[in-house]
Design a protein around this nucleic acid. Structure first.
Length: 483
DNA sequence: CGCATTTGACCCGCGC
DNA sequence: GCGCGGGTCAAATGCG
C-alpha cells in the first residue's frame, strides 16, 4: 500500500524534474523494467525523502521519539536526495559532454572545409541538428552532408551541430533563370519535406544594388510574425501556384526605410508562415526586438566575414569585440534555447550582430550568395505542451524581449500570450525545475569553463526549455542572381 | 479624424 | 509585340 503510494510520488517527481530528457527517461525505463525490489526501495528512498520524512516526523512526534532520531532520519533522507541529485547531475553531464564532443568534431570538420574552400560557387551549410529538414541541397548528395546527417541522427537530445560545405554544380543561364523565378516555390518545396520546422532562408538577388533577401519560415498562427519592427501593409496579391495571398509590408520604423517584407503562408503547411525581407534598414533595429534578425544577421555576417577573411572560422573568439548573440536571445524568442548557446555565442563571436540588411549591403562580397538559417523542431517534444515557446518561439520572436516595439496588432494572439505567461510562472514556481536546471548548469560550467563562461540568465532559461526540442540549420548557398 | 488595411488598377520585366 | 505574373500605387474603406 505504502509502496504504491511511494511509487506514485516518484512518478510525480520524475515528471517535475523531467529536464534530463532522454537520459532520465532511460533511467526511469530501467527502473520500471527491472522489478528488482531492493533497487526500487533504494531509489524510492531517494525520490521520496521529503514526503517520507514528514510522515515519519508526525509519527515520531506522536509516539514521542527522541529528537536525535528525527534529525538522523532527516539527515539520512537528505543524503539520499543528494545522492539522487548527483546521479542526475552525472547523467546531465554526460549528455552535455556528448553534445560538446559532437560540436567540437564538427567544428574541426568545418575548419577543414574552410581551408578547401574556393571563392566562387560553393555552398556552405551549417546545421545544428537538421532532422526534419530535407534540404534541397541534399539532392547534390555531398559526402560531408551525409556524414553530418549521420552525426545528428545519433543525438538523443536532438542537439547536434553539423557544418558542411560543398561545391555547387555550375548551371547554365537558363537554369539559373528558372531557379530565380521560382525561388519562392523552392522555399515551399523545402517546407513540404520539412515537417515541423522554422527557418530563415536568406538570398541575395540583386548584385547591382546589393539588395538582400532574407526569407524566414516559421510556424505562426497570426497573420504575420512579430519581428520587432513596425510594418505597414501596402499590398496583397495572390501568387500563382499558391492560393494563399501574399502580403506586402513596408518598414515604418523610420521614415523612408526601404525595407520591405512579403508574407505568405506555405502551401504545404498552412501553419507555416514564409516571410521574406528585402532591402537595407536605414535605422538601427529596435533593441531586443528580434532574435530572428539577430540570428539571420549572424548568418549573414558569418558569411561576410568568412568570405572577406577566410582565416576566420567558427572557433570561439576568432573575431573578438562582437557582442554575443545571446544578448539578444531571450529564452522565449530563441527557437533553440539550449545548451548550445555557447555554440551560438561562439558563432556570433565571429559574426557580430548588426542588422542583416546592413551587413549584407555593406559588403562587396555578399552579393551572389544565398544564406539560410533553418531550424526544425524535434518531433517528440514532451515539453512542447507545457513550454509552448519551444513550439512556437519563432512565431513570437519578441516574447520576453522587453521590447517596446511590439506592434499592437501584429503581435501573437492573446491566447498564446496567456498560455505563455502561465507557463512561465509555472516554471518559475517550480523549485524542482530550478534545482535541476541549476545543477545541470553548474556541472556544465565546472566541466567546461570555456563554453560555460558566458552563461547568462537568458542562457539558463534557454537551457531549461531546450530539452530535446529544436534543431537549427544554418546554411549558406551560392549565388542566386536576380535578373 | 487620423492611421492602417483592403483592393483593384497600373507598371514593369520576362518569356514566348 | 503580346500575355503573364509579380510588385507597387493609391483611392476606398474600416477602425479606434
Amino acid at each position: 500500500m505504502q509502496l504504491k503510494k511511494k511509487k506514485r510520488e516518484e512518478r510525480i517527481m520524475h515528471i517535475d524534474l523531467s529536464l534530463g530528457a532522454a537520459a532520465e527517461d532511460e533511467e526511469e525505463a530501467l527502473e520500471e523494467g527491472d522489478e528488482d525490489e531492493d533497487d526500487e526501495q533504494v531509489q524510492e528512498k531517494g525520490g521520496e525523502i521529503i514526503i517520507l520524512g514528514e510522515g515519519k516526523e508526525k509519527t515520531n512526534q506522536s509516539y514521542g521519539k527522541p529528537r536525535e532520531d528525527l534529525i538522523k532520519d532527516e539527515l539520512g533522507l537528505l543524503k539520499a536526495e543528494m545522492n539522487r541529485m548527483k546521479e542526475e547531475n552525472k547523467l546531465l553531464r554526460e549528455v552535455i559532454d556528448r553534445t560538446l564532443k559532437d560540436y567540437r568534431e564538427l567544428q574541426m570538420k568545418f575548419a577543414d572545409f574552410q581551408q578547401q574552400d574556393e571563392p566562387k560557387e560553393h555552398i556552405i551549410s551549417l546545421s545544428l541538428g537538421g532532422e526534419g529538414i530535407q534540404d534541397v541541397n541534399r539532392a547534390s548528395g555531398s559526402k560531408e552532408m551525409k556524414e553530418a546527417d549521420q552525426g545528428s541522427d545519433d543525438n538523443e537530445l536532438g542537439l547536434s551541430l553539423s557544418l558542411q560545405t560543398y561545391e555547387r554544380d555550375d548551371r547554365n543561364d537558363q537554369e539559373k533563370g528558372k531557379e530565380l523565378k521560382s525561388w519562392q516555390p523552392t522555399v515551399d518545396g523545402r517546407l513540404q519535406t520539412g515537417g515541423e520546422l522554422s527557418a530563415i532562408t536568406g538570398q541575395t538577388f540583386n548584385p547591382a544594388t546589393r539588395k538582400t533577401r532574407v526569407s524566414v519560415r516559421a510556424r505562426c498562427q497570426g497573420p504575420t510574425m512579430n519581428d520587432g519592427c513596425q510594418w505597414r501593409k501596402y499590398g496583397q496579391k495572390v501568387a500563382k501556384g499558391n492560393p494563399c495571398p501574399r502580403a506586402y509590408y513596408r518598414c515604418t520604423v523610420a521614415p523612408g526605410c526601404p525595407v520591405r517584407k512579403q508574407v505568405q503562408r506555405c502551401l504545404e503547411d498552412m501553419s507555416i508562415l514564409v516571410t521574406t525581407y528585402e532591402g537595407t534598414h536605414n535605422h538601427p533595429l529596435p533593441v531586443g526586438a528580434t532574435a530572428l534578425a539577430s540570428t539571420a544577421s549572424a548568418a549573414a555576417n558569418f558569411m561576410l566575414l568568412n568570405e572577406a577573411n577566410p582565416s576566420s572560422s567558427l572557433i570561439p573568439g576568432s573575431i573578438p569585440n562582437h557582442a554575443p548573440l545571446s544578448s539578444y536571445l531571450s529564452p522565449y524568442n530563441l527557437p533553440n534555447p539550449s545548451p548550445h548557446l555557447p555554440t551560438m555565442n561562439s558563432f556570433s563571436n565571429s559574426i557580430g550582430y548588426s542588422n542583416i540588411f546592413n551587413a549584407a549591403a555593406s559588403s562587396n562580397d555578399v552579393h551572389g550568395r544565398q544564406l539560410s538559417l533553418l531550424g526544425s523542431h524535434h518531433h517528440h517534444q514532451t515539453s512542447g505542451a507545457k513550454y509552448p515557446w519551444a513550439m512556437s518561439s519563432l512565431s513570437n520572436p519578441s516574447i520576453g524581449g522587453g521590447s517596446s516595439w511590439l506592434p499592437s496588432k501584429e503581435a501573437w494572439n492573446s491566447e498564446e500570450e496567456k498560455s505563455l505567461a502561465e507557463n512561465v510562472s509555472a516554471i518559475a514556481s517550480d523549485p524542482k525545475f530550478t534545482v535541476a536546471v541549476a545543477a545541470a548548469i553548474s556541472s556544465f560550467i565546472k566541466k567546461d569553463g570555456q563554453t560555460g563562461a558566458t552563461t547568462s540568465a537568458a542562457q539558463k532559461e534557454g537551457e531549461s526549455s531546450s530539452r530535446g526540442i529544436n534543431k537549427w540549420k544554418l546554411e549558406s548557398q551560392s549565388p542566386h542572381e536576380k535578373r
